[in-house]
Amino acid sequence: MIRDSVTLGELERDALTEIVNIGVGRAASSLRKMIGDQVTLSVPAIDIVSQRRAARLISEREAAELVAVRQDFDGAFAGRALLIFPESNSLELVRAVTGESLSAEDLAEMEREALTETGNVILNSCLATIANMLKRSLAMTIPEVLHGNSAALFEIDDAGDEDGLVLFLYIDFAVRKRDIRGYIAMIMDIPSLEKLKELLDEFIARVVGDDG
Rank of each mutant, 00 (worst) to 15 (best):
D211P: 12
A28H: 14
S29T: 15
A131Q: 02
R61N: 15
A27T: 02
V175L: 10
M188I: 07
G99L: 01
Y183D: 08
L93V: 05
G212R: 07
L127R: 11
L107V: 10
I180E: 07
E117Q: 00
A152I: 11
D189N: 15
I180C: 01
D189F: 05
L31H: 07
S103T: 15
E87L: 12
T141Q: 12
V43N: 08
S42C: 14
V67F: 08
L91W: 07
P191Q: 03
S125L: 06
V94L: 00
A159H: 11
P86I: 02
A205H: 04
I142H: 09
R206N: 10
I48Y: 00
I84C: 07
A139W: 07
G9Y: 01
L193S: 11
L146S: 09
S50M: 01
L41D: 03
R52G: 05
A28P: 12
A159R: 15
S5L: 00
G119E: 15
G164M: 15
V166K: 03
L57D: 07
E117P: 08
D14F: 04
A151L: 11
T7G: 03
R13D: 10
F168A: 09
S192D: 02
D14E: 11
V69M: 06
I156L: 08
E144L: 12
V6N: 00
V49Y: 08
R206K: 10
I22H: 07
E113Y: 07
E62I: 15
L83M: 11
G9D: 01
V43S: 13
F173N: 13
M188G: 03
G119W: 09
A96V: 07
T7S: 03
D210T: 11
D157T: 14
R70D: 09
I122A: 14
R112K: 02
E109K: 09
V208A: 09
N149A: 09
N124P: 11
S30L: 09
D163E: 12
E162N: 05
E100Y: 04
A78M: 08
Q51P: 14
K135H: 02
L196I: 02
D179H: 00
F154M: 09
F77C: 05
R32M: 15
A78W: 10
L83H: 06
F203I: 14
L167F: 10
A27P: 04
A27F: 03
S42R: 08
A28K: 06
G164V: 15
E113W: 10
A205N: 00
N120Q: 12
A128N: 13
F173H: 12
N132H: 06
L196W: 07
V121L: 12
Y183C: 07
A131W: 03
L107Y: 04
D172P: 04
I180G: 02
T141R: 06
G79C: 13
A55H: 10
R80L: 05
G148R: 06
S5T: 00
T116G: 09
S50R: 02
D211I: 13
L91I: 13
L83I: 07
M140D: 12
S101C: 01
E87F: 13
G25L: 11
E113A: 15
M34C: 10
N120A: 10
A139G: 11
E109N: 05
V39M: 08
N89D: 04
I180Q: 04
I187M: 13
L41R: 02
S192L: 02
S192W: 01
E111S: 06
S5V: 00
A151I: 11
D157H: 06
A159F: 13
F203N: 08
P191F: 03
D158L: 05
E198M: 05
